[in-house]
Design a protein around this nucleic acid. Sequence first.
DNA 1: TTGCCGAAGTTAGAGTCGCTAACTTAGTTA
DNA 2: TAACTAAGTTAGCGACTCTAACTTCGGCAA
Lengths: 219, 219
Amino acid sequence: MTAPSSDQSPILEAPETSRGDGRRGRYHHGDLAGALVAAAREIIERDGPANLSLSKCCRMAGVSTAAPYKHFAGKDDLLRRLVMDGFEDLGTRMRAARDGCPGPIADRITAMGMSYIEFALANPGMFRLVFGMTKEMHDPEDVEMDACGQACFQVLIDEVADAVPDGAGEAAAQGLAVMLWTFVHGAASLALDGNYDAAKKDVDLRMMVSMATERLLPA
Amino acid sequence: MTAPSSDQSPILEAPETSRGDGRRGRYHHGDLAGALVAAAREIIERDGPANLSLSKCCRMAGVSTAAPYKHFAGKDDLLRRLVMDGFEDLGTRMRAARDGCPGPIADRITAMGMSYIEFALANPGMFRLVFGMTKEMHDPEDVEMDACGQACFQVLIDEVADAVPDGAGEAAAQGLAVMLWTFVHGAASLALDGNYDAAKKDVDLRMMVSMATERLLPA
DNA sequence: TTGCCGAAGTTAGAGTCGCTAACTTAGTTA
DNA sequence: TAACTAAGTTAGCGACTCTAACTTCGGCAA
């Protein structure tokens, strides 16, 4: 019920013209598609995905409400772009966590899990958009989007596969990876939606994730 | 991008009058609040929470778009009612699973976890509404709603507490319960949003939940 | 240099939505 | 039976998505 903040001020207006004459408010924007995506991300984080409107993005970019249709098929198409960006950001974050943790593999998996949760807490709007609206609004035949998600999760899957004894087989490694992913995703969702708080549970996320990794990984 | 189905036909019209004269389309509905909630649940499951509109509910109930405001403060207030109903349904389902499973405690916890997941899969719109829009749209000071959620989760927490050795202390039991809840919630979310499929992972939910219960519970 | 073409903007407007104000209906109660 | 009031109504505002038709302007060929 928190009222979305006003966004009348066009803070993402057209950049300087390439001609360098410094004229603002000119007819052609230059990078409207990028400006709309940036505006949408800002609104999503500030007001939540449900309060995103194309009109707000237009106001922020300083263009008319018909302009986006030269770059996107519609609102859902812009959202789709955001979801794919979100998957990519999450994947990047997990790879960085993996590469930044040279220790034992269990620690590395914990670090990756924490980076997943930290992404959710740092970009709540984006996380909710990516995981809440994916199936609801997007075409189930959208293979490009599916590939985006798969590429993201594969980072975790691959790492866990390395932690499983060779003898256990690929299926076991995959099963384990899915379990760890499941746990981490649950933690991110519940923390984000405030359900731990609502249930009056004081949760130390890092400790919980490392415990889960430890117990779920084969000894 | 799946177009919401049309809902012009008022299938939830006013019931027969108490006077028994069988007159339809009469001025007073009888149970408009109930009819609106029922219509909203139907739309949420059919078109998803994002495509719910008060207008659609009104058309289904056969009343004008101004009528709901005699019963609800607004759309968010109706949504709030739905969220609380959802928590209650989920709690009921978990209690039923618990009571219907007289076996060892690990089996009982698995059964409760599965009932959580089954609720999500059977009522995807409701699950997404309850867990996706809770914090985003509802007043953080809404203690009544928080109590609703807590009452729901407490069913699982209590059961897990019984599974923990007495010596371990309450904190350990709570921590364990939260971990199981986290896992089950993650499984429900990922299964619901189709992310297991998108990641090309063939997941046997029941087996995964029982494995997680087994490994997370102290031996 | 000029003139044309097409990409990227514009305005105008239809249809939906949430919500409010003012009015009407009809059930209950004095 | 008359009056009160809860529960409906119509009318209309402002925001929203999206389309149609028009305008602007950058780049390319003659």
